[in-house]
């Protein structure tokens, strides 16, 4: 499960550096714990992002310990970095409709080809409900933070389910309209 896309990784690292100065390794650990889900950050991506942030003047190296390797560098957020982070945090994201058009496509194509869209929707509902039940079970033993992420998934699956029920209720009229 990946909840943060590549573009937001840099803001996640900025946010973690706003909390405290850190080494690259610390950043990766903190990121994975909080946002990584089942897909932890690769070290390469951490250091690539850090050097980019540094080049843009949003973070700075505040100490280099003896030894070799990027891990020896300690990073800190700059004033410019704080401003950029604040701007990003306050900025609403474009709503991203869950473009699961495949559900819609299957309904339409089933109707067009004279197959049962209702049976497909029933099967899809079953799979969605199973996923919700598993997530609900997982949430009951999850930390508050993990639980909140599971809630996010539950609400989105529920939105799909509402659409499935809505579509199921309109199949007859939809079929008539398509065949005109």
């Amino acid at each position: 499960m990946r909840i943060v896309d590549d573009m937001t990784v840099s803001y996640a690292l900025l946010g973690l550096l706003h909390e405290a100065d850190r080494h690259g390794y610390d950043l990766k650990q903190s990121y994975d714990r909080m946002f990584g889900g089942t897909r932890p950050l690769r070290f390469g991506q951490v250091y690539r992002t850090l050097s980019q942030l540094q080049r843009d003047g949003l973070i700075a190296i505040v100490g280099v310990e003896a030894g070799a390797g990027p891990d020896r560098k300690r990073y800190s957020i700059t004033a410019e970095g704080v401003t950029d982070l604040e701007r990003w945090l306050a900025e609403p994201e474009e709503p991203q409709p869950q473009l699961q058009t495949v559900l819609f496509q299957k309904v339409m194509l089933a109707l067009l080809s004279g197959r049962s869209a209702g049976e497909y929707l029933d099967a899809q509902r079953g799979v969605h409900l199973t996923a919700m039940r598993e997530l609900t079970t997982a949430r009951r033993t999850a930390s508050l933070q993990d639980g909140l992420l599971i809630d996010y998934q539950l609400f989105h699956i529920e939105a799909d389910l509402r659409w499935i029920d809505h579509a199921a209720g309109r199949l007859d009229t939809l079929a008539a309209e398509i065949q005109l």
Binding site: D122, R125, G126, H128, L129, T130, M132, R133, L135, T136, L154, F155, I157, E158, L161, R162, A168
Partner: peptide, 26 residues
Amino acid sequence: EPRVAAYADRQVTVRDGRIAQPATVL
């Protein structure tokens, strides 16, 4: 509400006075 139903061991759907799908077993 699906979110409420997700707490159950098993779910069935009633539509037009009939069970609409086979029960999914936990």
